[in-house]
Computed example of a mutant assay.
Amino acid sequence: MTTNPATNKGLNALQVSLLRLFNRPMTDEQTHDLQKVLVKHYTAQLHEELERITEEKGYTQEDFDKMLNQES
């Protein structure tokens, strides 16, 4: 069984603040807009991390192609 880490340790101050901020009626469109903002933010972080690792490891497009075509 997978548990939510937040329930084991409690919510941090930022999480509580966000819950208070969004503790109001929102339309489906507003909810969707907020989801898009969060996805955009985390996508940017993921791309930055990928670029950092790619540079750190010296990976090339050829390396990625080999990884994609390897048998699992």
Rank of each mutant, 00 (worst) to 15 (best):
A6W: 14
P25H: 03
Q45L: 13
L50T: 07
E55A: 11
L19H: 07
K36D: 04
E49Y: 08
L21E: 00
L38T: 02
Q45A: 03
L18V: 04
N12E: 03
L14K: 01
H41P: 03
T27W: 11
H47P: 01
Q15D: 13
D28R: 02
N12M: 07
Q35N: 05
T2V: 13
D33K: 05
P25V: 03
K57V: 14
H32V: 04
N23E: 02
R20Y: 02
L14R: 00
Q70N: 11
T31L: 15
S17G: 06
V39R: 14
H32A: 13
L14C: 03
E62L: 07
L38P: 00
E71I: 14
M1P: 12
L50G: 04
A13R: 09
T3A: 11
T27M: 00
M1N: 09
V39H: 08
S17L: 04
F64I: 09
K40Y: 02
N23D: 13
K40V: 02
H47R: 06
E71D: 11
R20E: 15
N69R: 11
S72K: 05
E56S: 01
T3V: 10
P25T: 12
N69V: 07
A44Q: 15
R20N: 15
F64G: 01
S17D: 13
E51A: 02
N4K: 00
T60V: 04
T2R: 09
H47G: 01
L14F: 02
Q61E: 14
N4L: 13
V16G: 03
A13C: 03
R20A: 09
V37S: 09
L38K: 03
M1S: 15
D33W: 01
L11E: 07
E55C: 04
Y42G: 00
Q15P: 01
S17E: 03
K9C: 00
V16M: 08
E29F: 11
Q15W: 06
H47E: 12
K9R: 10
K36P: 01
N69E: 13
Y59P: 03
D63P: 12
D65C: 03
N23S: 04
D28T: 03
D28Y: 01
L19T: 04
G58F: 08
R24L: 05
D65N: 14
A13P: 00
D63W: 07
